[in-house]
Design a protein around this nucleic acid. Structure first.
Lengths: 116, 116
DNA sequence: GCCCGTAGTTCTATTTTGTAGAACAATTCC
DNA sequence: GGAATTGTTCTACAAAATAGAACTACGGGC
């Protein structure tokens, strides 16, 4: 179990959704947030699997919501980011950022070396 | 072979390195670029596997260098990004960007809902 | 022409992530 | 109790990430 230094692509997305929901996010809502914000369709299974992994790594914590919500349906499981989660996100952002630094996608490579 | 809509985390990094090297990047140099720029250690196998995948998806093209380089050692295989590669990079950047939008890592969640 | 060093790429194997959707669980309202 | 509703868990598999050993191809001496 070599500890990975950077978050996976989807892990980043999910973790950001968790932050956005300010500790009140839960599976279905997190999914909605991602879909609305990015237009990316995601299955519910993908969300939970990722959340599960993030929790195993200590990047998020979860607590189950009030047992009897006034609305029917099963209790929610709320997720909140941890300090380590924040750090991990920062690390990933900075790493990617350093690769993006100075890159301009509109322009072809300085030398015009593009390929078909 | 369901075509993925977004690049993987490492795919992004490698693709950015390819752009940076302006069409003259090759395995070992791409690796060096990533390590120097990000401090992230990467195995050579990881680089090639990823480059291979990017090529299969049409995001980069490759051509082998001059058969008789004035330096000894095997011929290089140069990689250059394609128009589709650029588009893919843009898509991934925008998607992630929309999730980052407005997020401030220094601040705990608006509600202070952090977890141990 | 054959070894040696050097520079590079391929190959093999395995773990971790990403993905989907069906199954299951818990609650309210009739 | 049964249906509707809301949500989570489970099962299965594909794709991406990762490492490092093996292999290839060249130049330079001798």
């Amino acid at each position: 179990m070599t500890k990975r230094k950077f978050l996976g692509e989807f892990e980043q997305v999910v973790l950001l959704a968790v932050i956005r929901m300010a500790g009140d996010g839960y599976g279905m809502a997190i999914r909605r947030e991602i879909e609305e914000r990015t237009g990316r369709g995601v299955s519910i299974g993908a969300i939970y699997a990722t959340l599960e992994r993030l929790e195993a790594k200590g990047y998020v914590g979860s607590r189950s919501g009030s047992p009897s919500p006034e609305r029917g349906g099963r209790a929610r499981r709320h997720f909140a980011i941890s300090a380590e989660g924040r750090t991990a996100l920062q690390r990933s952002r900075d790493m990617l950022g350093s690769m993006w630094d100075g890159v301009d996608l509109e322009q072809p490579d300085s030398e015009g070396q593009e390929v078909a």
